[in-house]
Measured scan of single mutants.
Amino acid sequence: TEDARKEAKKIIDNGGSPDEAAKFIKKYGLSEDQARELVKRAL
């Protein structure tokens, strides 16, 4: 979702790792793979 993508970008912009961002956005109901893909797109 757009919200999850924004959250991921915010985490990374604040110095978080892509892994942290992926873990965080899994709470939106995404699978591990979906979360990682979304983080990649957010970069």
Rank of each mutant, 00 (worst) to 15 (best):
Y28K: 00
L38N: 00
N14D: 10
D13P: 02
T1P: 11
F24S: 15
D33V: 09
G29C: 11
K40M: 13
A42I: 15
Q34D: 10
A8Q: 01
D3H: 13
K23P: 00
D3K: 14
R36K: 11
K40A: 13
L30E: 03
L30F: 12
S17W: 08
R36H: 09
E7V: 11
A35T: 05
I12H: 03
E7C: 15
K10N: 08
L38D: 01
A21P: 00
R36V: 10
N14K: 09
R36P: 03
A21T: 05
K26D: 13
D33Y: 07
A42D: 03
G15R: 02
A4V: 08
K23R: 12
L38I: 15
R5D: 04
E2Y: 03
Q34P: 00
T1I: 15
A8H: 03
D13T: 07
S31Y: 00
R5W: 15
A35S: 02
S17E: 05
A8V: 13
A4P: 08
R36L: 12
R41A: 14
S17P: 05
A22P: 06
F24K: 13
Y28A: 03
K40S: 11
E7G: 04
A21R: 04
G16Q: 05
G29N: 05
I25V: 06
I25S: 01
N14Y: 06
L43M: 13
I12Q: 02
D33M: 08
R36G: 04
L30V: 05
R5G: 08
A42P: 00
E32H: 03
R36Q: 10
I25N: 02
K10E: 08
K10S: 09
A22C: 14
A4L: 14
D19G: 07
E20W: 11
G15K: 03
K10L: 10
K10Q: 10
E37R: 05
A4I: 13
D3I: 14
Y28M: 10
R36A: 11
I12C: 02
T1F: 15
K27Q: 12
A4H: 04
S31I: 00
R36E: 08
A21K: 06
G29A: 01
E32R: 00
A8G: 04
D3Q: 14
K40P: 01
A22Q: 09
D19T: 09
E37K: 05
G29V: 00
I11A: 02
F24H: 14
D13G: 07
N14H: 10
A4K: 03
I25F: 06
A22R: 06
R36I: 12
R5M: 15
D3N: 12
K27H: 07
D13R: 11
K10R: 14
K23F: 07
L43N: 03
S31C: 01
K26N: 07
K40I: 12
S31P: 03
V39Q: 01
L30S: 01
D3S: 12
V39G: 01
I12P: 01
E32P: 06
E7R: 06
F24Y: 13
A22G: 05
T1V: 14
R41Q: 14
K10C: 14
A22Y: 14
E7N: 06
S31G: 05
Y28L: 10
N14S: 12
I12W: 04
G29M: 02
S17K: 03
P18N: 05
K40G: 09
E32A: 07
E37F: 00
L30D: 03
G15M: 05
A42N: 02
L38A: 05
T1R: 11
R36D: 05
L43P: 00
K9H: 10
F24L: 14
R41N: 11
G29I: 00
D13Y: 07
K27V: 06
K27A: 07
A21D: 07
Q34E: 13
D13L: 11
A35W: 14
I25W: 05
K6R: 15
L38Y: 01
L43G: 04
T1H: 14
L38P: 00
I12R: 02
L38V: 14
A8E: 02
N14G: 12
V39E: 01
A21Y: 14
A8S: 02
R5Q: 12
E2R: 11
K40H: 14
E20P: 03
S31K: 00
R36W: 14
E37D: 10
I11L: 06
A8R: 03
A42S: 06
L38Q: 05
A35V: 11
D19Q: 09
I12G: 01
K26T: 15
E32K: 00
N14W: 08
K6D: 07
E37L: 05
K40C: 14
R5K: 13
R41L: 14
E37W: 00
S31F: 00
V39N: 00
D19S: 10
K27E: 11
A8P: 01
A42C: 12
K26W: 03
E2T: 10
D3V: 14
V39S: 00
E32N: 03
L43Q: 07
S17Y: 04
T1D: 10
I11K: 03
A35E: 03
I25Q: 03
D19P: 00
V39F: 09
R41P: 02
L43H: 05
I11G: 01
K6H: 07
K40D: 13
Y28Q: 04
R41I: 13
K27Y: 06
G16L: 08
N14R: 13
I11R: 03
L30G: 02
K10A: 11
S17G: 05
E37P: 00
V39P: 00
D13H: 09
D33A: 12
G16F: 09
A35Q: 01
P18E: 12
D33G: 05
R36M: 12
G15L: 03
A4T: 03
E37T: 04
D33P: 05
D3L: 15
S31H: 01
L43E: 06
K27T: 04
V39H: 01
K9E: 06
E37A: 09
Q34F: 06
E32S: 06
E20T: 04
P18V: 13
E20S: 04
L38H: 02
P18K: 04
K10F: 10
S31R: 00
I12D: 01
P18W: 11
D19V: 08
R41H: 12
A42R: 01
I25A: 08
G29L: 02
A21V: 13
A8M: 08
N14V: 04
K6I: 13
S31Q: 01
G16A: 06
K26S: 11
K27S: 07
I11W: 05
G16D: 05
A21I: 15
G29Q: 02
E32V: 06
R5E: 12
I12T: 02
A42H: 04
I12M: 11
D3P: 08
R41S: 13
Y28S: 03
K40E: 14
G29P: 02
D19W: 11
I25R: 04
S17Q: 02
S31L: 00
I11Y: 08
N14T: 07
L30T: 01
L43Y: 04
F24V: 15
K23D: 15
A21N: 07
K6G: 06
D13S: 10
Y28H: 05
I25T: 01
S31W: 00
Q34K: 05
K6E: 09
D3F: 12
L30R: 00
K6Y: 07
D33E: 13
K40R: 12
G15S: 02
V39T: 01
A8K: 02
P18A: 13
R41Y: 08
Y28R: 00
L30N: 01
G29D: 04
T1G: 09
I12Y: 04
A4E: 01
E2I: 10
K9N: 03
D3T: 13
Q34C: 14
D19Y: 10
E2Q: 09
E32Y: 09
K26I: 14
I12E: 02
K6F: 09
Q34G: 02
A8W: 09
G15V: 02
P18L: 14
F24Q: 14
I12L: 15
E32L: 11
Y28W: 05
K23G: 11
E20I: 04
Y28N: 00
R41G: 08
D13N: 08
E37H: 04
K9V: 08
G16E: 04
E20A: 07
A35Y: 10
A8D: 02
P18R: 05
S31E: 02
T1N: 13
S31V: 00
K9Q: 11
E7T: 08
G15W: 03
I11Q: 02
K10T: 07
E20Q: 09
L38G: 00
F24M: 14
A21H: 05
A42W: 13
A42E: 07
F24D: 10
P18S: 06
A8C: 09
K6N: 09
K6C: 13
K10G: 06
A35D: 00
F24N: 11
G15F: 06
E32C: 11
G29H: 02
A8I: 15
K40Q: 13
R5F: 15
R5V: 15
R5T: 09
Q34Y: 06
A42Y: 14
S17I: 05
L30K: 01
K26F: 04
D19M: 07
T1S: 11
P18I: 14
A4D: 01
D13M: 12
D19E: 14
K6A: 12
A21L: 15
A35G: 01
K27W: 06
